[in-house]
Design a protein around this nucleic acid. Structure first.
Lengths: 150, 150
DNA sequence: TAAAATTAGTTAGCATAGCTAACTACATTT
DNA sequence: AAATGTAGTTAGCTATGCTAACTAATTTTA
């Protein structure tokens, strides 16, 4: 790890940056899992629900693509969410398809869970200096875009 | 989402930054799961193995703490790793405990998997400008430290 | 020092979540 | 009309999370 070409404190070597980001992401999600347990919903259901809440209604197949799981897996995740009253099915023109939509309860529960997650992280960011937060804020947006483009 | 006080393109509002980092982490790990499947080892086993490879031998309880799972869960993860010949158990003074250590095979497999993960991310970073990578490199280190302190 | 309490790890049993293969039902193409 | 393709489900496997209850070893205490 770390070849340290190190002309500066940081580096622009993609592998070295990737390594740090990778490490950060692992540790972040490891911690956030804890706040998620408070929601009483499993991680896959929570994640699928978040797509419906933040991006609107989707068919099962679209949801499976978005979550990068196979249709049978999404079929079961959706069954669980429906059983818990967090989402609803709507018939469509094409009778093979169905539109899935978050219910009011589902939306509320998701937003509370998301708040818990984000608040935990935000609290840690408060220990940084104003300048550091400024830099991190500038770059967080860029980072999110790069990663979504993977 | 996004109250957008927005005095600048970025912000120093911890909640807003946290929100973006959260989003980035989710999308990153969602993608990296794909490269991990090539290793033929489950995510929990891979993660536990990485602790043994990068931080040295640990008892089962220490490993459970590090991975934030309960002892019975780690007990089974360890059983799987041992069955696949990726780790080894060593007796200790206290006969209730056992030290777990990665085998040569385990170390090799883990490092290859890690390389696949990191390379995939590094490839995406190559689409950034030199300046952007420089900024990201400067901040990645800070980010990793903050998150580990959660 | 014998008994009680604590600690480390396992076993059993449950739920969720990932997969492939095989199926049903509907839609489209030929 | 028949063949092909597409959307989603069912069945059955493995892995991963939990709690409760257990065994064995160690430490504390009466």
């Amino acid at each position: 790890m770390s070849k340290s070409k190190g002309r500066f404190r940081g580096t622009s070597d993609p592998v070295e940056i990737a390594d740090r980001l990778h490490s950060a992401a692992i540790h972040l999600l490891r911690r956030l899992r804890i706040s998620d347990r408070a929601s009483g919903i499993g991680p896959a259901q929570l994640s699928a629900l978040s797509v419906l809440v933040f991006s609107g209604p989707r068919t099962l197949g679209e949801l499976a693509d978005a979550e990068q799981v196979r249709p049978p897996t999404m079929s079961r995740i959706v069954a669980g969410l429906e059983r818990s009253g967090l989402i609803r099915r709507h018939a469509t023109e094409d009778k093979r398809r169905m539109l899935l939509e978050a219910t009011a309860t589902g939306t509320k529960i998701l937003q509370e869970g998301r708040k818990r997650r984000v608040d935990a992280l935000a609290q840690a960011l408060r220990s940084l200096s104003e300048l550091e937060r400024q830099q991190l804020g500038d770059i967080a947006d860029l980072l999110d875009r790069v990663i979504r483009s993977l």
